[in-house]
């Protein structure tokens, strides 16, 4: 049956150790191990490109074992090769959080965020002019990261990163590269609120400024305007 062969191929390609029974069933041990190598090499390559610094930090052996563990669960669920590192990271970050120095998981989150924004969908095409009494429409290629280590600073120190609360905005710039901007806590809250788009811009600004005991004066408005100009495309939904 075709489905039996397909499942045997899956186990041979993704299993931690291919079984001799599957290899015998498929008919050519040596050649099916070639397929196993081809499939795994391609996936390892894209993961290594996306998580280059993390791989260097944990070492090739640890990185390879984590990829093996992830593949052992059955292989990628995504048809898009560019999303493979994201699927790997869902497992890998939790593994490395438990087994590696505490900054490694932050570094992996940062690298995955930069990978995501580079390959993120285009910005929404449908939105209206900016209006403070309406919900914001923000750029799609933008992530807010709340980290415990300044892993965006390179090169990676030989002794790793010291603990330091780090708020970052990672976004795709005009040259289509991933750019990183350090945020203060108020700006991070604003950007996250605008991404959720549960409130109008005015509502989010008033609420978050109050939470941070910040007066909405000229200096605040100037910085707010810059943040809006950079990340808010326009508005949607009814006026409130």
């Amino acid at each position: 049956m075709l489905s039996d062969r397909a499942k045997a191929m899956q186990r041979v390609c993704f299993g931690t150790e291919p079984s001799e029974a599957d290899l015998a069933f498929l008919g050519s041990r040596e050649r099916w191990l070639v397929y196993r190598d081809l499939v795994r090499s391609r996936l390892m390559h894209v993961a290594s490109v996306a998580l280059r610094r993390t791989k260097s930090a944990v070492g090739d052996d640890t990185f390879g074992r984590t990829v093996d563990e992830w593949l052992g669960a059955g292989g990628p669920r995504t048809r898009y090769l560019r999303h493979v590192p994201n699927e790997l990271a869902e497992l890998a970050i939790s593994v490395w959080r438990a087994t590696e120095p505490p900054w490694v998981a932050d570094l992996a989150r940062y690298e995955i965020a930069t990978w995501e924004v580079r390959h993120a969908p285009p910005d929404p095409k449908s939105f209206d002019d900016l209006a403070f009494d309406r919900k914001p429409t923000v750029r799609s290629a933008m992530r807010v990261l709340r980290l415990s280590h300044p892993v965006h600073e390179t090169p990676t120190p030989e002794t790793g990163y010291d603990r330091e609360q780090t708020l970052l905005c990672v976004y795709r710039d005009q040259a289509h590269q991933a750019a990183t901007r350090k945020l203060n806590p108020l700006a991070a809250d604003l950007l996250e609120a605008w991404q959720k788009a549960d409130e109008t811009i005015a509502e989010s600004v008033e609420r978050i400024a109050a939470q941070h005991h910040t007066e909405i004066g000229p200096a605040f408005v100037e910085k707010l305007s810059a943040l809006i100009a950079e990340f808010v495309l326009g508005a949607h939904g009814p006026s409130r």
């Binding site: 075709l2 489905s3 048809r79 493979v84």
Partner: peptide
């Protein structure tokens, strides 16, 4: 070819058997 099974993708082109079923 066969590109995936059970909602998993090989990201490679695996061969089909040359059978009537396939």
């Amino acid at each position: 070819c066969l590109g995936g099974v059970d909602d998993r993708f090989f990201h490679d082109l695996l061969p089909l058997p040359f059978t009537d079923e396939a």
